[in-house]
């Protein structure tokens, strides 16, 4: 009973369709600072940006890339009722990429008349799903939730795409965003330009206004899109798609999504 309740919670957090009803985000205390400083990051899923009032983002799949391209370690991680928090010591000069990367398969099937649910990796799938499973349905998901912090001058090493899922390849550096200026980014799907993809950008502070004030843009043939920042502040970006590019043949659909938080500075 205890186990299945736990599993249900884990599944609820993992099923992309339910997660998409809310906005997941990472909110750093600062994005532009000097070397050897600390930043602290809130990670939550909520309706309002950026208020932790629903559920935390789990930190199990937190991956931080330092300016030299090597992994960096979060310190003082904590997961509470509404949010997770961690600190990061910016020991290097340059840009850190902070990401929560969720990728996996989930399956539902019947075994001896009993309904079963399963989640895991492609490698585990072959081993753990019984051969006599009936009505097997498998979905795949790949999600990235990112933000960026720069100590000193920005650099691009940590921003190199991994080639898996939806990713942002900066044309404008994500820590060089200023109100009134136009920034350009490229979205990649499995390392290739993600063309004709809808992108939604929502300014923070939505708790104190009636409308989302979302900015809707579309990527062009090369996966690029531009946005002119109307005002300084924190912004939340999301793009998602569904395709059939799955890693096991039983999975018919793959749900891919990308989320990022940006700070736009005043001139």
């Amino acid at each position: 009973m205890k186990f299945s309740a736990k599993l249900a919670v884990a599944l609820a957090a993992f099923v992309p369709f339910s997660a998409f009803a809310h906005k997941a985000w990472l909110l750093p205390s600062t994005t532009v600072t000097t070397q050897d400083q600390w930043v602290t990051v809130d990670a939550a899923v909520s309706n309002d940006l950026f208020y932790f009032n629903h559920v935390p983002v789990k930190l199990d799949n937190l991956a931080i890339t330092a300016p030299d391209g090597k992994p960096a370690q979060a310190e003082n991680p904590f997961t509470g009722k509404f949010r997770s928090v961690f600190d990061l010591h910016l020991t290097q000069a340059g840009t850190y990429k902070i990401a929560v990367v969720n990728a996996g398969l989930f399956a539902s099937y019947e075994l001896n008349g009993e309904k079963k649910r399963w989640r895991g990796t492609a490698e585990a799938f072959a081993k753990e799903i019984p051969a006599d499973a009936k009505n097997l349905e498998v979905n795949q998901s790949a999600g990235r939730n990112e933000t960026f912090v720069t100590a000193g001058a920005p650099n691009d090493t940590a921003l190199k795409p991994t080639g898996a899922g939806l990713e942002l390849a900066p044309v404008t550096h994500p820590n060089d965003l200023f109100a009134g200026e136009t920034a350009k980014f490229r979205l990649l799907l499995d390392g290739k330009p993600a063309a004709d993809l809808d992108v939604e950008i929502v300014p923070g502070g939505s708790r104190w206004r009636d409308k989302q004030n979302e900015i809707k843009v579309k990527t062009d043939k090369s996966g690029e899109f531009s946005v002119t920042w109307p005002a300084p502040g924190m912004y939340w970006l999301e793009a998602s798609l569904e395709d059939a590019n799955t890693s096991v043949k039983q999975a018919k659909k793959r749900r891919v999504n990308y989320v990022a938080t940006f700070e736009v500075l005043q001139q």
Binding site: V32, T33, T34, A153, P154, Q267
Partner: peptide, 23 residues
């Protein structure tokens, strides 16, 4: 080793930090 703590707030000179300070 450690930089002076006073440099922590230099990025508050936003325009200067962007144009000169950060590099």
């Amino acid at each position: 080793g450690k930089m002076e703590q006073g440099t922590k707030w230099l990025a508050d000179l936003r325009q200067w930090w962007r144009r000169a300070g950060r590099s």
